[in-house]
């Protein structure tokens, strides 16, 4: 039997009548980043919690490197680094002590632990804070330590549940860079996120889940090809000054514009033909209208596919 890095086999989780997960089957192997997408309450965190033995499945099995997490937890999680939700650390401990505790639990040899702690702290830009108490740190700083803890011991499989949550824009960008670097170092990263741009920037593959059901899994290009609305694309456009009704009507009449959605008086979403040449013509027409156009941003294919997948389910 082939051993996958991550394998969910008929995974179900029920809370009374509510099915949080319904027959999830997922097999992931190799060194890559897989984005786990879905709206709030879709079952992303529930799945990750089952893979870290924080909750038990109602039925089915979760394997890491071929080992059932719920039956042989220590063995299964031996080569796993996990960040689930936003953990808190004992406030009286320093960052070094907190990381040391996790490092020792993971069995990192003493002679390597000090070096490993400095390396991961440096990676998350928290090296200068190693001897400061965690209780005095901001939420973002704590989240960086949580990421550092997940990276301790050079794990093969890294499970991240919305890793940029609680971070400022700079922190988010740094975490994305860290994940991109990790991809080059023989890790499988399975990462849940709400942020489509984040997933399309970092990940190689994507799994989409909603109402506890796995709706799509494959490479980003495959999923986009399969689910992107045929011949249509959504473009976000912004203006320097508020639009009048007359001006909005003029936009609706541009050749190639299929639909106009008013976000507010400065921002619109227009559904247009996905042909790049036609999009270029629409942009020229918008400029010619002299409405003070400040932005013309076609959605990524993933965003379109995401909306398409979840529209089909809804």
């Amino acid at each position: 039997m082939q051993k996958y890095s991550i394998e969910a086999l008929n995974l179900n989780k029920r809370y009374g009548q509510f099915n949080a997960l319904s027959d999830i089957n997922l097999k992931i192997e190799g060194n890559k980043c897989v984005g786990f997408l879905g709206p709030n309450g879709a079952g992303k965190t529930t799945t990750l919690k089952i893979f870290t033995d924080m909750i038990k499945p109602s039925s089915g099995q979760a394997f890491i490197n071929g080992i059932d997490v719920n039956h042989e937890k220590k063995k299964a999680l031996k080569s796993v680094g996990a960040l689930i939700e936003t953990p808190e650390i004992y406030p009286s401990l320093t960052e070094r002590e907190a990381l040391s505790m996790i490092g020792q639990i993971k069995g990192i040899p003493k002679e390597k632990l000090t070096e490993n702690i400095i390396k991961v702290a440096d990676r998350v830009k928290m090296k200068e804070w190693l001897d400061k108490k965690v209780g005095k740190m901001s939420k973002g700083m704590k989240q960086r330590i949580n990421i550092a803890a997940a990276l301790l011991g050079d794990p093969d499989v890294i499970l991240l549940d919305e890793p940029t949550s609680g971070l400022d824009p700079r922190g988010m960008s740094e975490v994305r860079d860290i994940i991109k670097e990790l991809k080059k170092e023989n890790h499988l990263i399975f990462m849940s996120s709400h942020i489509l741009s984040e997933v399309s920037e970092i990940c190689d593959e994507v799994a989409m889940i909603n109402h506890g059901k796995l709706l799509a899994y494959g490479s980003i290009s495959d999923v986009v090809t399969k689910f992107q609305s045929k011949n249509k694309n959504i473009v976000s456009i912004s203006f320097a000054s508020p639009l009048t009704k007359l001006q909005t009507d003029k936009i609706k009449k541009i050749k190639g514009v299929i639909r106009v959605e008013i976000i507010d008086r400065l921002n619109l979403n227009i559904t247009v033909d996905s042909n790049p040449k036609k999009q270029s013509e629409i942009l020229s027409s918008l400029v010619k209208l002299k409405l003070g156009l400040t932005a013309f941003k076609p959605s990524s294919g993933l965003e379109d596919a995401y909306l398409s997948v979840f529209k089909e389910v809804a």
Binding site: M54, K74, L77, E85, P87, A98, I105, A149
Partner: peptide, 12 residues
């Protein structure tokens, strides 16, 4: 949520 820091590791 301190348990979230430790429980997801290889420890009973």
């Amino acid at each position: 949520k301190t348990g979230y820091f430790t429980v997801g590791n290889p420890i009973r």
